[in-house]
Nucleic acid binder design. Structure first.
Lengths: 193, 193
DNA sequence: TGTACATCAGTGAACGCGCGTTCACTGATGTAC
DNA sequence: TGTACATCAGTGAACGCGCGTTCACTGATGTAC
């Protein structure tokens, strides 16, 4: 059946959005079949929209990064002046974010799997780390913009590791303690003055 | 054919050692078949040694953690008094460790995949984080042992995240810069006095 | 305005493949006599 | 010391399953006349 004009673009959007959440929740091993079934479609149609699963993974990652940035911007806007960095750290290392893998930061959800992905996928990673570092850099201490950006990159990678480790722990008490300690320490170590 | 007395134990050891490296290099998705083929055996024999793939994964993880601890202890022994923490950080975030996934820290290699593993596997993670924190805690600043241990846990999770992100980047320059900045910052932020 | 036809998003069978696990079998060795 | 036999680590075919990808097909709509 032929579909109305913008139908195809909408379907593509739905696939990327669903993939973005599902890859984070279940890993890069999620199948095209599962994905399309969740959208009440069959796997065959997938290739009308994407050349390969890797292309989808790269786009889904990029989408997840955009969502992540939106969430960070929202935390910054609500924060009192001077407390922006604390707001970012507290949000990123909150128990809510920890429990919400499919809606959370894609680096924390997928980092160790990404090192095994082809170039297409890892280049999305480069761009994401760069833009996250630039965005967070303005709230860091440091003499030059370059130094603040570098520091922000380190903080970002540190937080993603803490979140990934917290999620991998089986003991809930350990998880909460790690997150709480990390929030305190990162704000102290990376905050302005 | 029946084998000499200690033969079975030796084979089991070889499987765990190979799995430990291979899971880190290629992820938890590595198959039993690939693994046994690399040891010049067939997949069928695997189940004389292990109940399931998950059991092997848990044991391989534990083994990798032990190797990791040995490497950390070696770095500490070689370090001048007072510079132990710097030695640990410089070793963990070295370009050598970054390039050596299969022989490196299993948390950096597998963290995001571990959150999706069954309890058996994640409990190995609890023990590892606990023991790494205790071991590294003695070189941290802080009033009480408990505080130093907590700090060490945060540093460990931070370093594993930085290493995982560094490995996922496609740009070698970005990778080296991130590692270098992180070494400096962690030593400064977590070091004694 | 009415009709014939081209379009193409989505369907579902099929491709070769590898997965985790099971199981009947093999055959060199250790052990019992 | 010699022989018969039990053991059991490892083999390889087979199980049902899902993977990524391809492709001939469907059929409601937009378009051309």
């Amino acid at each position: 059946m032929r579909y109305p004009a913008e139908h195809k673009q909408e379907t593509r959007e739905r696939i990327v959005a669903a993939a973005s959440r599902r890859f984070r929740r279940a890993g890069a091993g999620v199948g095209i079949g599962q994905l399309m079934r969740a959208l009440k479609m069959t796997h065959g149609g997938f290739y009308r929209h994407f050349d390969s699963k890797h292309q989808l993974l790269a786009e889904a990652l990029t989408r997840a990064f955009e969502d992540s940035r939106t969430r960070i911007r929202a935390a910054v806007v609500k924060a009192p002046p001077g407390a922006e960095l604390a707001a970012i750290v507290n949000m990123y290392l909150s128990e809510e974010h920890c429990a919400n893998i499919s809606g959370g930061c894609p680096v924390a959800a997928l980092a160790s799997e990404l090192s095994r992905q082809p170039r297409v996928v890892r280049q999305a990673m480069d761009r994401a780390v760069n833009s996250a570092s630039t965005a967070m850099g303005q709230f860091m201490s440091g003499a030059t913009t370059a130094e603040r950006t570098r520091k922000a990159g380190v903080l970002f990678s540190a937080m993603s590791g803490t979140l990934a480790v917290a999620r991998a722990l089986s003991d809930g008490e350990m998880r909460r303690a790690l997150l709480a300690s990390a929030r305190t320490m990162y704000i102290e170590a990376f905050g302005k003055g």
